[in-house]
Design a protein around this nucleic acid. Structure first.
Lengths: 342, 342
DNA sequence: TTGTATGCGTTATCAC
DNA sequence: GTGATAACGCATACAA
């Protein structure tokens, strides 16, 4: 438990002032190359490590990025985290992560903690029941950049990173139509959340553009849990005429719905074709394998951190960039393939 | 972008000294209740937030816990993170997370960053190819508690949190034997890692205790990836006599192996029974559903942080506690059930 | 119960 | 190129 080495100790060791040591360690141009060399050597030799608090205190910057995420243990969110971590570490930033457990209440508390931790910037994917984003006001007021990803909210002082959910849902629905489906059910989440609202839109537009009627009765709204998938299957089985296609806003829910339908004797995709959303690993495992929308979580994390750092370094201005849209893709698998491949 | 409020500002506002303000805000007993009340009010009213750097600098404590994890986007690891985050936040600690991407090289770099970030304690799950733990020496030297979980290493100054992998594997293998399997293949990961080495042991012991021969040729060692599962299936199909049971050290690998076997016309569990490890969500989705060992990731995360905080608060001594073992459980599903349930 | 003075380790400012 | 000094905001030893 030896005492920490400070720049004063180094200064004594090399016969320079602490100022020069500090400058050398920060690679300041106005320090003689040889001096730098010597100071570096002594510093490593003495086992020096810079004290980030002192430095942060002085510089008023933390080199820390806060992340508020609904729930960590989801395939999508953990991919996002992985992407974020990679870029952040490369750029010399630390990531502090907190989860809102999907509730606005915890999200508010987490925002406060992040504010008190004086993060340089904040990355947020909103909770299910977040009604407004007043709890981020302190950040906006102080000019701390806040960046939303996936589950976003509009704010003139923040950027959003998303995929084009309307287009993705449009593609998914169109694909079902092309496979001959005419009675397509859509299982959606809380429509207050941008992603689900937009997917519903895409579904609707696709129907309309292909001269199919949009029927409220074919839209099932729930929390997209595994059980919700099973319940949705029961609802579908009761519908008359029986639907011939289902587009679900979440893979896990889709998989469970599909399994429940299968158990009820429905043949997938022959009787009912199914499309999910997210490209979760389970989509490749389930039988039949699930057609889905590939959701670039890892890339989203990378882009989010990179953009944030650009704002921090004043390379770009947050009030100019409104939305960054990532590419998503329909991945066709067995669960929806009713026609022979072309 | 207004200026930050400090305890000095509050002091002026209430007519007390900064000292009293500081004490009041820290709920120091030697401050008059009414004074505290007034100071609290003014503080919140003025929008005060404590400056953690100044505080950290003064106290020489960061209230930050470092986590080094092989890879974030795995079902198990993200569950662990979720558990960690919950307990840490409740206790007023921040979590900074970094991933080693499974390589010792990055692990060394991350350890250094964590050290420089002056984390109060460190939680580590080791990379695949970590040969020694010298890179944690600086922590040991400075008395910073290091706690290993899941993929652990022995060190007299650190605690390990694990499940009893020997016993779990023993249970899994015994279950296969009880289902009538006599020729059981074991698919394992890198045997330098404690978890895989111990599972191999458990497999071996179970065979021996049931008077079955242990054969090296029935142990397949790979990286437990999805492709490795498929390759392993090919190996199994070539074995003579054909094995009638497979115990895989990882669910994802197991699932892919099972699917490959099915495609080759093998009936599961009739021809070959399969057991996995981890209780990943896919085990419930795959057909037939996969028998596996439930691995308490979330709980492991909770326990890890709680233990660490206990050390930090000197409630317990790290050099005394060697290992904390969590309960794990065999979950029997269709993939191994060859006999009727009792 | 409250206040004064000091230091935590750095970096920015100004002077040489 | 280099150095002296102050300041960042807080917590504590000591004094009252």
């Amino acid at each position: 438990m030896d005492k920490d080495i400070t720049i004063y100790d180094i200064a004594k060791g090399v016969g320079f002032s602490p100022t020069t040591v500090s400058r050398a360690l920060n690679n300041h141009p106005a320090v003689n190359q040889k001096t730098k060399q010597r100071i570096y050597e002594i510093a490593t030799q003495m086992g020096y490590r810079s004290n980030m608090f002192a430095s942060n205190l002085r510089r008023q910057r933390t080199h820390t990025i806060g992340v508020i995420v609904p729930i960590l243990n989801s395939s999508f969110q953990s991919s996002v985290m992985a992407g974020m971590e990679k870029v952040a570490t490369e750029a010399g930033y630390n990531l502090i992560i907190s989860q809102s457990m999907g509730t606005a209440e915890k999200e508010v508390a987490n925002a406060k903690t992040m504010f008190n931790s004086r993060v340089d910037g904040l990355l947020v994917s909103l909770a299910h029941d977040t009604e407004n984003i007043d709890h981020f006001e302190p950040f906006f007021k102080k000019g701390i950049p806040v960046l939303f990803y996936d589950r976003v909210a509009e704010h003139k002082q923040s950027t959003s990173i998303v995929i084009d959910n309307v287009q993705a849902a449009y593609k998914a629905t169109t694909h079902l139509i092309e496979q001959g489906c005419r009675n397509i059910v859509h299982i959606s989440g809380n429509l207050k959340i941008n992603v689900y609202a937009n997917r519903l839109k895409g579904y609707k537009y696709a129907l309309i553009d292909h001269n199919l009627p949009f029927r409220e009765s074919l839209v099932i709204t729930n929390n997209l849990t595994e059980e919700d998938g099973i319940k949705a299957a029961e609802q579908i089985l009761k519908m008359k005429p029986r639907p011939d296609g289902v587009f679900v806003s979440n893979d896990f829910c889709a998989v469970n719905c599909m399994k429940a339908l299968k158990q009820a004797g429905i043949s997938i995709p022959h009787d009912i074709a199914v499309v999910g959303f997210n490209n979760d690993p389970i989509t490749r495992v389930v039988e039949p394998s699930l057609t889905t929308i590939d959701y670039p979580g890892y890339e989203m994390g990378e882009v989010a951190v990179r953009s944030l750092i650009n704002y921090l370094d004043a390379l770009s201005d947050i009030s100019i960039t409104n939305t960054i849209t990532l590419r998503s893709e329909l991945i066709v698998r067995e669960s929806s393939l009713r026609k022979l491949q072309k």
